[in-house]
Amino acid sequence: MSMEILILAAVAVFVLARLFSVMGKQKGAPPPEFRRQANGERPQPVLVHSDSNDDDEDDFEEASGLEKIARVDPSFNQREFLAGAKSAYEMIVKAFEAGDRATLRSLLTDDVYADYEAAIEARETSGEAAPDFERIRDAQIEGGELNGSVAEVSVLFSAELATEERIMSTREIWTFERDTKSRDPNWRLADVSAA
C-alpha cells in the first residue's frame, strides 16, 4: 500500500510540475501586438525612419563651441591648447616689450598686429619703456566658437607686469583663432579685451 502511495505521489508531482511549467502560455494564439482590434482590423505597423545625418546635424548644432571645434579638428585638446596659449601669451608680451615685430607678425592676425605695431611706434616715439613680463597667475578657457571653418577660443589671463615703480596686475581675455581647414596647426591672437 505504501508503495502505491509513493507511485501516486510521484505521478502527482510530475503532473503538477508539467502544469506549472506551461501555465500562462497561450499556445496557438498570436502575439498580442498582432491580435485583431475590436473592429476586426489589424493594427498597421508603425515604421520609425531615422535619418542619421539629421540627427548628427542636430547634435552638432546643440554642442558647445568647444565641442564643435573638437569634432571638426580631432587634434584639438583643451589642456594642450591652454598650455600653448600660456606660452603664446608670454612670447607675445615679451616680443611687445622688445619691439620684436617679426615674432609678433607670426603670432598675431593682421588686425591685431597693426594695433601692436602702432603701440610700439608710439612708445618708441615717446621714449617710454614697456612694462616687463613677470608671470601668469592664472589662465582658463572662457569659451569657444566655430565660425565656418574658423575656430575661436577665448582665454582669460591674469598676469603680473612690472615697471620700475611697481608691479601691476592685469586681467584680459585673449581670443585665438585658427582655420581648421588649414595645414598650419598654429593659432594666432585675434582679439584682446579687458576682463
Rank of each mutant, 00 (worst) to 15 (best):
134 E>G: 05
151 A>N: 00
164 E>V: 11
169 S>T: 13
144 G>T: 02
139 A>T: 05
154 S>N: 10
160 E>C: 03
128 E>A: 11
179 D>Q: 08
159 A>Y: 01
135 R>G: 00
162 A>N: 06
148 G>K: 02
178 R>L: 01
120 I>R: 05
120 I>S: 03
119 A>H: 02
119 A>E: 14
134 E>K: 10
185 P>I: 02
173 I>A: 10
169 S>A: 14
144 G>A: 03
165 E>W: 10
150 V>F: 03
164 E>M: 12
131 P>D: 01
147 N>I: 12
159 A>F: 00
179 D>V: 06
115 D>M: 12
144 G>N: 01
187 W>V: 00
191 D>W: 07
169 S>K: 11
190 A>G: 13
169 S>Y: 06
127 G>A: 06
166 R>V: 12
114 A>M: 12
131 P>N: 02
189 L>F: 07
114 A>Q: 15
121 E>L: 14
153 V>Y: 01
189 L>E: 01
123 R>H: 03
147 N>P: 02
164 E>Q: 13
149 S>L: 08
144 G>E: 01
119 A>V: 06
121 E>M: 11
153 V>T: 01
190 A>E: 11
174 W>E: 11
122 A>P: 08
176 F>I: 10
163 T>Q: 05
167 I>K: 05
152 E>L: 15
113 Y>L: 15
126 S>E: 12
140 Q>C: 10
169 S>E: 13
122 A>C: 06
148 G>H: 00
173 I>R: 09
127 G>S: 04
126 S>A: 14
145 E>S: 12
123 R>Q: 04
141 I>A: 03
177 E>T: 09
175 T>Q: 05
145 E>M: 09
160 E>T: 05
178 R>H: 02
168 M>S: 14
119 A>G: 06
121 E>N: 14
171 R>G: 09
189 L>S: 04
179 D>H: 08
129 A>M: 08
163 T>I: 06
181 K>L: 14
171 R>M: 08
187 W>G: 04
162 A>L: 04
123 R>N: 01
168 M>E: 15
173 I>K: 05
121 E>V: 15
174 W>K: 09
114 A>D: 15
164 E>C: 07
129 A>Q: 10
130 A>R: 02
152 E>C: 10
181 K>T: 14
